[in-house]
Amino acid sequence: MIFTKPDKTSGAGSVLFRCGIFLPGTVLGLGLVVFSLSLVTFLAFRHNDGSLLGSGWTGSNFLTILTDPLYARIALRSVILAGLATLATVIAAYPVAYCIAVHGGRYRKLVLFLVTLPFWTSYLLRVFAWKIVLAYNGVLNSFLVGTGLLHEPSLAFLNTPAAVVVTLAHAYAPFAILPIYTALESMPGSLLEAAADLGARPLTAFRRIVLPYSFPGVLTAIMVVFIPTVGDYVTPALVGGPQSVMIGSLIEMQFGRANDWPFGAALSVAVMLVIAGLIALLRKTEAGKESRL
């Protein structure tokens, strides 16, 4: 039997051909996601009896999360630190993305390649690098003491919430640059030229043209950065100290040292619900912004 490659340009045949290619991977990916979420939700409503899946059904895990002020404080701290890291990341990423998209010219691909270079190294190594920079005898303290700005090394840099924010902002900067760049790249350059011809000042052109075009990319960058940072536990553990414990650290502790998988799963479900609510709010904001444009 001779296999004939279907004509991908012929209407229904093209659709079926594409579906046939992507269907197995899509089903596998969705199946793994649904299985994982179902397993975590199943565990969240189980008693902890020391076994892997627990025994009996209960809602006490969620009741503890809702009534114990400790978890409310840590959850609020996680949202605040992740929000500050996201804000710092987007503010730092926007000028870079703008320069690449508008002024990159023939060096655009090279700069984009340099932006993605951090992906070539382990996230853990990047966090350790910041720990070396911020340590008592680290690079930053050595520089400040060497220049006479400090008389002796300071303990104010490492094991602080600020260290967590800075480290997260640096680690996730490429994730913010790329969606903002993609949004700005679709902006016709003739719009800025027309604005200049009509007498618009650069700030006015930026506010009336560049920002609306980049808004979807900015929202995407916010979601891409905020979602992983709010549940991060590696960075707070290495550079944050006791005052920077986040909800991801508690989840890791429940699945690890405490051996309370049901309660760890309940914390995970609670975090997912909070993130889902924030995503829905951002989507609503994006829809309202697009309706006004």
Score class of each variant (00 low, 15 high):
residue 270 A to V: 04
residue 117 L to W: 08
residue 289 K to D: 01
residue 198 L to G: 08
residue 88 A to C: 13
residue 19 C to T: 11
residue 272 M to D: 03
residue 103 H to D: 13
residue 175 F to I: 09
residue 107 Y to G: 14
residue 39 L to I: 14
residue 36 S to I: 14
residue 139 V to R: 07
residue 208 R to N: 14
residue 236 P to K: 04
residue 25 G to M: 08
residue 188 P to Y: 02
residue 126 R to W: 09
residue 112 L to W: 06
residue 179 P to A: 00
residue 140 L to N: 01
residue 232 D to T: 02
residue 175 F to W: 10
residue 66 L to Q: 08
residue 237 A to D: 07
residue 190 S to Q: 11
residue 107 Y to E: 04
residue 180 I to W: 01
residue 57 W to V: 13
residue 18 R to H: 09
residue 197 D to A: 12
residue 175 F to N: 05
residue 261 W to R: 14
residue 125 L to F: 12
residue 85 A to K: 11
residue 245 V to E: 10
residue 203 L to I: 12
residue 212 P to I: 09
residue 286 E to Q: 12
residue 154 S to M: 08
residue 186 S to H: 12
residue 249 S to A: 15
residue 286 E to N: 04
residue 276 A to T: 04
residue 242 P to Q: 05
residue 107 Y to R: 15
residue 81 L to T: 11
residue 45 F to E: 07
residue 171 A to T: 13
residue 133 V to S: 01
residue 35 F to D: 09
residue 178 L to Q: 01
residue 19 C to Q: 01
residue 91 I to Y: 03
residue 49 D to S: 06
residue 164 V to L: 08
residue 2 I to A: 12
residue 48 N to Q: 08
residue 144 L to G: 02
residue 167 T to M: 10
residue 5 K to C: 01
residue 187 M to N: 05
residue 40 V to F: 11
residue 20 G to E: 02
residue 2 I to Y: 02
residue 256 G to H: 03
residue 228 P to N: 03
residue 90 V to L: 04
residue 118 P to D: 09
residue 216 P to S: 09
residue 45 F to P: 04
residue 22 F to A: 12
residue 160 T to M: 05
residue 159 N to Q: 08
residue 230 V to G: 07
residue 52 L to V: 10
residue 98 Y to N: 08
residue 30 L to S: 02
residue 154 S to N: 09
residue 95 P to D: 10
residue 146 G to K: 07
residue 123 Y to R: 03
residue 264 G to A: 09
residue 284 K to C: 02
residue 111 V to D: 04
residue 157 F to T: 05
residue 189 G to V: 07
residue 202 P to Y: 06
residue 262 P to G: 09
residue 111 V to R: 02
residue 231 G to K: 03
residue 148 G to E: 09
residue 202 P to Q: 04
residue 116 T to N: 14
residue 159 N to T: 05
residue 109 K to M: 07
residue 173 A to D: 02
residue 240 G to W: 02
residue 167 T to H: 06
residue 205 A to V: 14
residue 44 A to E: 11
residue 206 F to D: 13
residue 231 G to D: 06
residue 113 F to V: 09
residue 224 V to N: 07
residue 180 I to D: 04
residue 3 F to Q: 11
residue 149 L to R: 02
residue 293 L to Q: 15
residue 7 D to N: 14
residue 234 V to R: 05
residue 16 L to R: 06
residue 39 L to V: 13
residue 2 I to P: 13
residue 87 L to I: 14
residue 111 V to M: 15
residue 218 V to N: 02
residue 250 L to F: 00
residue 56 G to D: 10
residue 29 G to R: 00
residue 148 G to N: 07
